[in-house]
């Protein structure tokens, strides 16, 4: 599943860039994401993703790896996790881009999400909708965080 999101943030590019690497604050923007840990500064992180669709709940201990980094401009990362209780795996490929637009910064990201295993039984449609919702909420939360403190 592929998703594309773009959000305009009324904050300078440098501030947005720094925010991304502020792991605790950044992770707090991802709905359902908690217990973020830095394993290797700038390279590897860990977190737990908890998501719920009706009565179905998943908990993915997730490993995040930063693959490429272009200062102030671009990040390419990969995340993967497994919920062994349910027997499902999650894989996320993320491409984040920052560009300046006057006094605003445009944060654009392309996300490739794969859900394997039992959870897929819920239905591709439902998972797609949920992933879309999570990414939307994430983009809005980042914007709010950055525009909130001036």
């Amino acid at each position: 599943m592929q998703f594309q999101k773009e959000v305009e943030i009324r904050a300078p590019r440098e501030k947005v860039w720094r925010f991304i690497w502020d792991v605790d604050r950044f992770i707090a923007c991802v709905p359902g994401c908690k217990e973020a840990k830095t394993l290797e500064e700038g390279k590897r992180y860990a977190a737990t993703m908890v998501e719920k669709v009706g009565p179905f709940k998943v908990e993915f201990p997730t490993n995040i790896e930063v693959l490429e980094r272009e200062e102030m401009t671009r990040i390419k990362a990969q995340a993967s996790g497994a919920d062994n209780k349910i027997g499902s795996r999650m894989k996320l490929d993320l491409d984040v881009n920052l560009r300046e637009d006057g006094d605003k910064t445009v944060l654009a990201f392309v996300a490739g999400v794969d859900i394997l295993g039992k959870l897929a039984a819920l239905g591709h449609g439902i998972i797609k909708r949920k992933a879309d919702q999570v990414l939307d909420e994430f983009a809005q939360a980042v914007k709010k965080q950055l525009e909130g403190d001036s």
Binding site: P55, F56, K57, K85, I86, G87, K118, L119, A121, L122
Partner: peptide, 20 residues
Amino acid sequence: AKIYAGGTELLLAMKEGLVD
């Protein structure tokens, strides 16, 4: 806890291990 009547949906989800 969960309400159980006919079980035609609930038991399927439980057998799949999707809920507990």
